[in-house]
Design a binder for these strands. Structure first.
Length: 477
DNA sequence: GAGTGATCATGG
DNA sequence: CCATGATCACTC
């Protein structure tokens, strides 16, 4: 279609950034069906099996751009690439980006000769117009999915980390190890498997090893940060600014050394040294740590941790044995959603992406006072390849049971209701790393599964024994 | 005292 | 009020 035709039919100037943004603004609140209905083009049957369907629909029926597989940006005159990103409801009231955003396919043969400034990836990354829509996994509701918001993002602010990860991928391909690439070794721009999953040839390999087909993708936490700051950017503070760091490379080490400088001290001592108030709430310890890390507001979110998908867990341990009192919980799942999730995009997979554990010890019997608790040695953890495989296996076991329908028996016991509900879900003792367990206000705080069965709210927990091993390893290292 | 389902308590 | 971090409490 000619640009002049686009102007006539779609009422905006495809060669002008402002005009494109004005057009994008009108998308807010519209359902996919409304977009189709308002389209000046003839409708076609949408193939709901096509993963690019939402993007294609918006490109074609809202912006008048023909679907293509050219390697130039969608709005080529202004160098803007259009990406749609599904938003899912993680827990009530909290909306988050569902998955990574694919940028472009990696061509191993040509990548090795590319320069960053002229690369295929950079041409797609320079400027991206993200369009966020509310995802519905039920295909029958496909057309009612609604556009929530949009954001124009420029590479410049994050080019350092993104280009360095592009080079990291390139270097590995140059050295003939494209077959050992893994998304897990990257923080923002990652080579993730894509396409049909088949294995293809790579240059420079010495044993003819085939590599999986991959694409560059911006990882979920990074996109989620862009989404989250649309709504309220004030809740974030930068830890790099607070600690005066120059790059992401040593972020973790710097954070650790900052915290571990104070290990062995009581919360009271630390609060005094950092001029932090001690709150009466359960996150009192966390608040003190935030002050220690230089945060002005102890309830701020940490910008870089959000972008990199790192979360902090302050974990109570016993002074003597340095072991957990309890397993560690994550937010409650929603049974209906859990039955439909894929492991990679699951809530748990994101929660386990990377964790900063901050153990705080107390005497099991005597010491109830938060002030007297002692900061122990903090450490980062993310699942190793072996651990992740096991976690995924255990997660799938739970998912399969939920898919079939959880069985619930009432067993008499001396509780409020006179019985406890025993489910067919595996217990902690029969798993190694994670288990599922009730997580509710009380036994009337319930969820409903896809069969209409009422069940007490549950969440995933990290097994006590497993985390105890992590603590031990950290103390011995 | 480990294991497991139930429940408390705070702050947003 | 509700989600969640934290912990309780009953049974074996």
């Amino acid at each position: 279609m000619e640009n002049s035709d686009i102007k006539k039919l779609f009422n905006y100037d495809i060669t002008n950034e402002k005009s494109i943004i004005e057009r994008a603004k009108l998308l807010k609140g519209k359902s996919l069906n409304e977009i189709l209905v308002s389209s000046p083009l003839s409708k076609q049957i949408i193939n709901t099996a096509n993963k690019g369907r939402v993007g294609n629909l918006i490109e074609k029926h809202w912006f008048g751009i023909d679907n293509n597989n050219l390697s130039e940006p969608d709005f080529k005159e202004v160098g803007i690439e259009l990406k749609v990103s599904p938003i899912k409801e993680m827990k009530s009231n909290i909306l988050a980006v569902k998955e990574r955003t694919k940028i472009c396919r990696i061509n191993y043969q040509t990548l090795v000769n590319e320069e960053w400034s002229e690369s295929h990836a950079k041409s797609k990354l320079n400027k991206i117009l993200f369009i966020f829509y509310k995802h519905d996994f039920n295909k029958d509701n496909w057309e009612t999915q609604e556009i929530l918001n949009f954001r124009l993002w420029s590479l410049s602010s994050d080019e350092l980390i993104i280009s360095s990860e592009w080079f990291k991928t390139k270097d590995q391909v140059i050295s003939g190890f494209a077959h050992t690439l893994s998304e897990r070794n990257y923080q923002v721009l990652a080579p993730c498997t894509s396409g049909t999953g088949k294995n293809i040839a790579q240059p420079n390999t010495c044993n003819q090893a085939l590599a999986k087909e991959r694409s560059f993708a911006l990882k979920q936490p990074f996109i989620n940060f862009l989404w989250d700051t649309l709504n309220d950017s004030n809740v974030y503070e930068s830890i790099k600014d607070n600690l005066d760091l120059s790059s992401n490379d040593n972020l973790e080490l710097q954070v650790l050394s900052m915290i571990n400088n104070f290990s062995g001290k009581t919360i009271n001592d630390i609060a005094k040294l950092t001029n932090a108030p001690i709150l009466s709430s359960k996150n009192a310890v966390r608040s003190v740590i935030m002050k220690l890390l230089g945060f002005k507001n102890e309830s701020s979110k940490i910008k870089e941790f959000s972008q990199l998908g790192i979360q902090i867990k302050v974990i109570p341990i016993d002074t003597k044995n340095k072991t957990l009192f309890e397993s560690i919980s994550f937010p409650a799942i929603k049974f209906k959603d859990f039955a439909h999730e894929s492991w990679k995009d699951s809530g748990l997979s994101l929660d386990l992406n990377k964790i900063l554990f901050i153990p705080v010890s107390r005497n099991k019997l005597l010491n109830r006072d938060i002030k007297e608790r002692v900061l122990e040695k903090a450490f980062f953890w993310n699942p190793s390849i072996t651990q992740e495989k096991l976690i995924k296996k255990e997660w799938l076991t739970y998912q399969n049971i939920v898919k079939q329908g959880v069985k619930i028996d009432k067993k008499p016991q001396n509780s409020k209701k006179g019985y406890v509900e025993v489910t067919s879900l595996p217990k902690e003792s029969s798993t190694e790393i994670i288990h599922m367990r009730t997580h509710a206000r009380d036994s009337d705080d319930r969820d409903v599964d896809q069969f209409g069965t009422s069940i007490v709210k549950h969440s995933f927990w990290l097994n006590k024994k497993f985390v105890n091993k992590l603590i031990k390893n950290s103390l011995n290292s």
